[in-house]
């Protein structure tokens, strides 16, 4: 028996890893080139004055766009690899038989790593409820999954740094746990559309065995899909942010979006809920607003209400929830976001 000859599957796996290594090296090379290149284009090639409004805005734009797009591609790839180890089916199995409390915390944590698209909110809701997962635990998942999404985390990390990204994740988790527990305690099962209860619980799908090659290919597919969907929002958002950065005077927003303006947090949530946009477009703009005096709590509250309480998802959920439960859902999450916003303004 000769073990030295690799089988075809192994060679293609090896080739895949080599290719991946080359891509990672190119990624780091490019990432380090962005700053000098942006400065060179702005100040040497376009002859813009350093310190001028236009020069500052252009340099900011040329640096942030490639930086965020590279960060998005790289980190979404990593997150997608992690996600190939999770699936809604596995999450449901993990949540089965968990008490409230423990279940809410676990559901919120799993909401971060389970692949989820709001277009799948209905089958997921029905599947969870059918298998006996409590309503409140199901809601914890449905709040955490869209709020703490990969695009939001990467954009926050790229534009605000890891501390704010971490704060966002932690507060998203707390909101999902608390709002889910509150909804669970209110015993609103009668406001779930009746047909949901009449469906028979179906068995699970058989698990797939994935090789590393499969995982890498799937992660690559989701990079293409997600970056393909958000790149335009990133560019437009950063363009608006760059204009604010260059032209709006320092501390112009302290009066209306600063800590002293007590009404700014609820106002931010009120504006944010109907404003459906993805994190990609909003975060560059709020990043620029913060530079001009908006406070972090207000900004985070605004972002969470835009990303977490999206109108399309609510409309989709209307298929399985009666209007009363929809109202409780939006109300509870909005209140939780407002409290979090105040908390940050208070402690930071």
């Amino acid at each position: 028996m000769d073990h030295s000859l690799p089988r075809p599957a192994q060679t293609s796996q090896l080739r895949m890893f080599l290719l991946l290594g080359a891509v990672v090296a190119a990624w780091f090379g490019l990432y380090n080139l962005i700053q000098p290149l942006a400065n060179w284009i702005t100040y040497s090639f376009l002859h813009l004055q350093a310190g001028s409004h236009l020069g500052d805005s252009v340099a900011f734009f040329l640096y942030d766009v490639p930086k965020i797009l590279l960060l998005l591609s790289g980190m979404i790839f990593l997150i997608s690899i992690i996600r190939t180890f999770f699936s809604p089916e596995r999450t449901r199995a993990l949540l089965g038989g968990k008490r409230e409390g423990v279940g809410n915390v676990l559901a919120s944590l799993l909401g971060i790593v389970t692949p989820f698209c709001s277009c799948s909110a209905v089958p997921l809701f029905i599947g969870f409820i059918e298998s006996g997962i409590p309503l409140g635990v199901t809601f914890s998942f449905l709040i955490a999954a869209p709020t703490i999404n990969e695009v939001a985390i990467v954009m926050l990390f790229g534009l605000f740094g890891w501390k704010v990204a971490g704060l966002y994740i932690v507060s998203g988790l707390i909101i999902a746990v608390i709002a889910g527990m509150v909804i669970g305690r209110m015993h609103l099962e009668r406001y779930v559309e009746d047909f949901v209860w009449q469906l028979q619980a179906a068995g699970g799908v058989e698990g797939e065995k994935l090789t590393w090659k499969d995982r890498i290919l799937r992660a690559w597919d989701s990079v293409k899909e997600i970056v393909g969907k958000v790149w335009l929002y990133v560019i437009v958002g950063i363009a608006i942010g760059a204009a604010i950065h260059g032209y709006v005077p320092e501390s112009a927003l302290v009066g209306i979006m600063g800590k002293q303006a007590w009404w700014s947090v609820p106002a931010a949530v009120l504006v944010g809920v109907p404003l459906y946009s993805n994190a990609a477009g909003v975060i560059p703009i709020v990043s620029a607003l913060m530079e001009k005096g908006a406070s972090l709590g207000t900004v985070l509250a605004f972002m969470m209400s835009v990303v977490g309480l999206s109108l399309p998802e609510t409309i989709i959920l209307r298929r399985v929830l009666k209007p009363q439960l929809i109202a409780v859902f939006i109300g509870t999450v909005a209140v939780a976001i407002i409290i979090t916003g105040y908390l940050f303004n208070l402690i930071l």
Partner: peptide
């Protein structure tokens, strides 16, 4: 139709 879809053991579309 969701009622039809849910006849299969499916959690995401």
């Amino acid at each position: 139709d969701y009622a039809e879809i849910m006849k299969w053991p499916i959690l995401s579309t």
